[in-house]
């Protein structure tokens, strides 16, 4: 905790700033490589970006240009944030419920942001009472629960991983938690992927619902990258 007068900044926020700084430095460093005709880093960056973009396009073919930066940012941040727990002395920011709740809130807002932006407020809200107004409470409950589930799922997995690794290290001794650390890597990647995919599905469900109710939308209409 960093105490700055009456304000106390949590360790997760500080770590997040570190992650942001790291990502900004990597992006700045990669910019120079991207201007070169052909090199390994450019190819790697393009390939990873295309993989993410293709995943988004599979879910929201008409809006992938808008949605990709948000989902890709989620994936990149979560991968780094989840893996940060492997560094001795550091803790994953996603092991903090406030961080995952903030991300879940962002997803919640993003779903409505993209829906309203592309369909308009009225059309976006209409899907809560379609096909019948009776379903409105269920829709509202679903919105809340899925956001909560999103936050708690990530928090629970990462926090439990770190705690389990700590317990095994205390009980069994040095080098024994290595398999658990390897599991941490897999779990960190899987949880980042699941969070991003779920966010994408939520955004996509709002957009596709709107698509079925209204056809006068303005899709990206871009050609596919292979």
């Amino acid at each position: 905790m960093l105490h700055w007068g009456p304000v106390s900044i949590s360790r997760a926020v500080l770590t997040t700033w570190g992650v942001m700084l790291l990502l900004w430095g990597m992006s700045w460093w990669l910019q120079g490589r991207l201007r070169q005709p052909d090199n390994l880093w450019r190819t790697l960056a393009e390939t990873l970006y295309l993989m993410m973009e293709n995943a988004v396009r599979d879910a929201v073919p008409n809006y992938y240009r808008q949605v990709t930066p948000f989902i890709a940012s989620l994936w990149i941040f979560l991968v780094l944030a989840n893996l940060l727990g492997l560094v001795p002395g550091l803790h994953s920011p996603t092991g903090d419920l406030s961080v995952t709740a903030a991300l879940a809130l962002l997803v919640f807002v993003a779903v409505h942001w993209f829906g309203i932006r592309n369909r308009g407020l009225k059309a976006h809200l209409r899907h809560y009472i379609s096909p019948s107004p009776i379903l409105l409470p269920f829709h509202l409950i679903s919105e809340i629960t899925r956001t909560l589930a999103l936050a708690i799922r990530l928090f629970g997995n990462i926090m439990s991983l770190e705690m389990a690794a700590l317990l095994v290290l205390l009980v069994a001794g040095f080098l024994v938690p290595i398999p658990l650390l390897m599991l941490h890597i897999v779990e960190a990647l899987v949880q980042a992927y699941i969070f991003g995919v779920l966010a994408l599905l939520y955004i996509g469900s709002g957009l596709e619902t709107n698509d079925t109710t209204h056809s006068n939308h303005q899709p990206d209409g871009d050609t596919q990258h292979d």
């Binding site: 942001m20 990502l23 992006s27 406030s98 903030a102």
Partner: peptide, 29 residues
């Protein structure tokens, strides 16, 4: 406070990545 800061952090990160990573990559593509 953490929630608010994390929301701001992510939005800033989104801008940073969009400005310094995704846009150059899209330009390169």
């Amino acid at each position: 406070l953490t929630i608010i800061l994390e929301i701001i952090n992510f939005l800033v990160l989104l801008w940073i990545l969009q400005r310094f990573l995704f846009k150059p990559i899209r330009n390169a593509l």
